[in-house]
Design a protein around this nucleic acid. Structure first.
Lengths: 350, 350
DNA sequence: ATGAAAGCGCTAACAT
DNA sequence: ATGTTAGCGCTTTCAT
């Protein structure tokens, strides 16, 4: 039994103990911590920092938050982290925020409505400084937005600029234009029999891409056919599963709602001896970190993920502007390795 | 100009306003909210709940947290969400926690030490109820553990049971055994020329798998060779890049540190007309949601991701046990589609 | 059954 | 330059 001094209720060091040890008031310590101009002497500062080091004091964000509001904890809502695009995005955002000592509370909400609602409620109680909503959720978001804490900065990614979204900052690509560009390149490659594996209609981006693609597709003459058209979940296994039926219709190009689907279809072709892209061209969307490596035989559309994440990070640390800003980022059609295109075409490495 | 009534400083509804509206004290409201036994009348409860609904009150977790400690916000540290295994794991954990109204603060720490340290500091200030450390980080974690908030429950995944880790709960597979099992199956398939693309040494799991594999490999006679041995980053592009040199040594099996690497190598083979697994067998590790679909020609080792996540979720909501628990979960060797094995072998679907 | 009051860790007016 | 005090939103003794 050693001396039972230090009978603190918890081992967590607070500002109070620093104050006690330095024979100062907590306010002075606080001033030192926050580097208020001439509100303490040089000597005091020394002593305080010393005590902080010695006691291993760590400021408590929660206490601070309650007092002065939160500029520290942000939230991100994504449908599913298993979609590599979302994982890439969140990772990029994470890194950007961490370098400013901010933390990102990412929630992979899945697709059951019940869970989404519970989660939103919980996030509302977190006094989040900002909330990023990325891509589609199963449900429209009136609830989410109204529920949201008044001081929470709201930012949208790839959700369009109309309706509710008109009132908030948003970043994204021109999904319609991108779909169209993609179709044009496909048509220029001489493909005529199209199979569509598109994303769910409740997703804004999915709809836009699909409609854009169709616009670009029919533009180029009537000698084309849509041989298959299905709406599927945007996962590799859904793509793999749907591929069988689609391929049965003998297409020479399969449009996929995103890269995850495209990878699934690609795998189907690989296991069935179908040559890609010669026999069937497969198009995806995103050019995520997975397809950058595994999708070399795919045609896809690159989104500038890092730039988008940086934009979001920037917005989050600024006050809500008078007029919401909508930033459309450049996209880029990525060709399969070895694809023959006329001059001016975008190549894989660029 | 309408009436400028309701001159509240913020729109956030607090317990105070509920109390005011019901002509009650805040404590009574709190009692109702927390369902304390006989501390309020039925009628009161009715009124309170009504006011809550009408005013759209949402409890503030931060205030509550400060008062009674945190049982709500948890943290997870992963090296990189772009590794699908981590994304899968975090997603599973997320879902499990959400269904108990808990939130997971996932941080993708990347591999720069500086960022890792900053992030740890920030997490320390968050009064986290629990912290899960998954897989390897570039650095050993003495600092992390000592810095950690006293009331934070610490849980490890795939970090072993020795040293520091002996003191905490941990879940994982038997990485050494799994590596060995894998090697045995490979050898039984008659492969003899081995190329190794293993993970970094600072990763416990990587080391264990590698050593286990070697143990299983040499066990089966001297007529085998290691034709290539490299340590690489566990990403598809690193795998793709390393594949060239490895393949140059003419192996009939390439061991990869995890599935991400294996996918990269697989893609290399696909673009170079190498038949997998006939010509070269590729082995991975994890059987993540990506390889479950795209890795059908791979041999790999399945980790029970969901079960592991559930174990973690369970631990997180329990008090730290007297004796730390170390749970070893079963692994399973997954064979390439169509692989010929004797009876008793594990098949792909199981 | 209800309320008054203290306090979680911190900051910021407002003294001095 | 330093201290006093109040209060962020909530829970919890302790009275009544």
């Amino acid at each position: 039994m050693t001396t039972r001094a230090r009978e603190k209720k918890s081992d967590t060091v607070t500002i109070k103990e620093i104050a006690a040890r330095c024979q100062l008031s907590t306010s002075t310590v606080s001033h030192v911590l926050n580097g208020q101009s001439g509100r303490y002497s040089e000597d005091t500062a020394q002593r305080v920092w010393r005590a902080i080091r010695e006691l291993g004091y760590q400021p408590n964000h929660i206490g601070r938050m309650l007092r002065k509001g939160n500029d520290w904890l942000y939230g991100a809502l994504v449908p599913n982290l298993a979609n590599v695009f979302y994982a890439d995005f969140v990772h990029a955002l994470d890194i950007a925020l961490q370098s400013q000592d901010r933390l990102l509370l990412t929630v992979s909400v899945g697709d059951t409505l019940e869970l989404q609602q519970r989660t939103m409620k919980n996030m509302n109680g977190a006094m989040l400084a900002g909330l990023v909503l990325i891509g589609s959720t199963a449900q429209e978001l009136h609830q989410i937005v109204t529920l949201s804490h008044r001081n929470t900065r709201l930012v949208f990614v790839n959700r369009g600029t109309t309706g509710l979204y008109a009132n908030y900052c948003g970043v994204g690509i021109d999904n319609f234009g991108a779909g169209k560009d993609l179709a044009v390149v496909v048509r220029r490659g001489g493909r005529r029999r199209l199979a569509l594996l598109r994303g769910p209609d409740f997703s804004y981006a999915s709809r836009q891409r699909y409609e854009g693609f169709l616009a670009g597709w029919v533009d180029h003459g009537p000698d084309v056919a849509i041989v298959y058209d299905a709406t599927i979940r945007l996962t590799p296994d859904a793509g793999f599963a749907a591929a069988q039926e689609a391929v049965g219709q003998n297409p020479d190009v399969i449009y996929c709602g995103n890269d995850m689907v495209a990878l699934g279809v690609l795998e189907y072709c690989a296991t069935h001896g179908i040559r890609v892209p010669d026999q069937i061209l497969i198009t995806g969307f995103d050019y995520n970190s997975m397809t950058q490596v595994l999708g070399q035989r795919l045609m896809t559309v690159a989104q500038p993920i890092d730039a988008m994440a940086l934009t979001v990070a920037e917005w989050l640390s600024m006050p809500q502007p008078e007029q919401p800003v909508h930033r459309i980022m450049p996209h880029r059609v990525v060709l399969p390795r070895g694809w023959n295109e006329g001059p001016g075409a975008t190549t894989r490495e660029s």
